[in-house]
């Protein structure tokens, strides 16, 4: 339970948002050339880090926009919020 500072709406309760999981997993540019291992990696394998993890979040009960969050999963502390398309911050 924590607050998230939506870059478009400001600080709101986490229950207004939905987590979209690990960020920066790019959709394959040429899907037909992927083998099964590469598909498994893209679809299922996750870092699931205990520590600072980069995630996508959606303000589903607000502006409904997506953005990225760098969050420490060991204490739910948010380190940085940045927009979609931006590079992950160096922390």
């Amino acid at each position: 339970m924590f607050l998230i500072n939506c870059p478009y709406c400001g600080e709101r309760d986490q229950s207004e948002f939905v987590s979209g999981g690990e960020a920066h997993i790019a959709r394959p540019k040429q899907p037909t050339e992927l083998n099964d291992d590469q598909w498994a990696e893209f679809l299922f394998m996750r870092k699931n880090i205990k520590g600072v993890q980069f995630e996508r979040w959606n303000h589903v009960h607000g502006c409904r926009k997506w953005f990225n969050v760098a969050r420490d999963t060991s204490n739910d502390k948010i380190e940085k919020i940045y927009k979609m398309g931006e590079q992950p911050p160096k922390l």
Partner: peptide, 13 residues
Amino acid sequence: DSYVSYTQKGSFN
């Protein structure tokens, strides 16, 4: 909860 966390707490809602 819908998000990854290792806090062993969980949200009130």
